[in-house]
Amino acid sequence: MSDILEKISLAIQEGEEDEVLEHVDEALGEGISAQKILDEGLLHGMGIVGERFTSGDAFVPEVMSAADALNGATAVLKEKFIEEGVTSTGKAVIATVNGDLHDIGKNLVKLMLEANGFEVFDLGTDVKQESIVQAAKDNNADIIALSALLTTTMAEMGNVVKAIEEAGIRDQVKILIGGSPITQGFADEIGADGTASNAAAAADLAKQLI
């Protein structure tokens, strides 16, 4: 890895957005492609942060700062990505289902998806099934991630799966579900593609599925 890409990776690991942007600018000046900056600098650093988080050596705030720095850099590189035809790991629509107002779990999954290079469209909490379907269609989503914390709202996930089927996009998306009361058995029962026990595992599963 070149010095400058290593510097980008380190600045990401430290969550220093200004430094990341400075080094990205420098790398572009050296003629390094946006794809290489993304893969060997930004996502390399993010991968290390993700590993540290999974092994218990880092807390969420460190991942947040790194993700913010990553998002800042990808915003700057957007035009270059288009020119070079660089694409994200995948596109994910995420929401807490209708009737449920909890969002911390959803936010953590969103964070880990972003940290793994996904472009994430966050619809918020208490989201109706038609809005989820529409967002998936509008954004050509690869993943639909649904969250519920209540025993009385997890059943709504089954309705969302049905709505996705009825909209004719079931074979274009993978559906992940999560939340305290969710089990693999429930995921199987409603026809979702999987569930995971924590946010990092959810992002890994999303990568495996697409």
């Binding site: 009737g99 209540l150 025993t151 009385t152 997890m154 059943a155 709504e156 009361p181 429930f186």
Partner: peptide, 8 residues
């Protein structure tokens, strides 16, 4: 207490 898995 709370309800079992069901829609309200």
């Amino acid at each position: 207490f709370t309800l079992p898995t069901m829609l309200v």
